[in-house]
């Protein structure tokens, strides 16, 4: 099972996980959230994230999702990317998370690509939609 780590500003990751849990009807396994607060040392987060990645990796790798490209949570993760082991997606939304949580047995590469697709496909301007 691919591990999942949400690294976000404040409680965004926890809130999304709470909503996803309600939809799933059970708490998913092998997932965790890290809240990045801007008044904390960036260096301490690197240690925490690294340690969490190792815990979550059961051999199939870890998909890490952060909320906003260019912001601190994502910038910290940029240095931690290990191809075939840890993949990082930004722009976290609930559809991305739901896809990740319902396809845990896919390979890390496939899961990453699927989450990217569903995350994007679910951004819709209803005014221009049938």
């Amino acid at each position: 099972m691919v591990g999942i780590l949400l690294v976000t500003h404040g409680g965004i990751g926890f809130s999304l996980l709470k909503s996803a849990t309600q939809i799933l009807g059970k708490h998913p396994s092998n997932i965790n959230c890290i809240s990045v607060e801007t008044d904390h040392e960036v260096h301490s987060y690197k240690k925490t994230i690294n340690s969490e990645l190792l815990k979550l990796d059961s051999g199939m790798g870890v998909l890490v999702m952060s909320d906003m490209y260019g912001a601190t949570p994502t910038n910290i993760l940029k240095e931690l990317i290990v191809p075939n082991k840890f993949q990082v997606l930004t722009g976290l939304n609930l559809p991305m998370l739901m896809q990740a949580l319902t396809s845990r047995d896919s390979s890390l590469k496939d899961l990453t690509n699927d989450c990217l697709k569903y995350g994007r496909d679910n951004i819709i301007n209803l005014n221009n939609h049938d």
């Binding site: 559809p95 739901m98 896809q99 319902t102 396809s103 569903y118 496909d121 679910n122 049938d130």
Partner: peptide, 16 residues
């Protein structure tokens, strides 16, 4: 539905 055919084993496909 409406000309679309999706995999019913994928929750997100059903939702969409």
């Amino acid at each position: 539905k409406d000309g679309k055919k999706i995999n019913a084993k994928n929750m997100m496909d059903i939702l969409m």
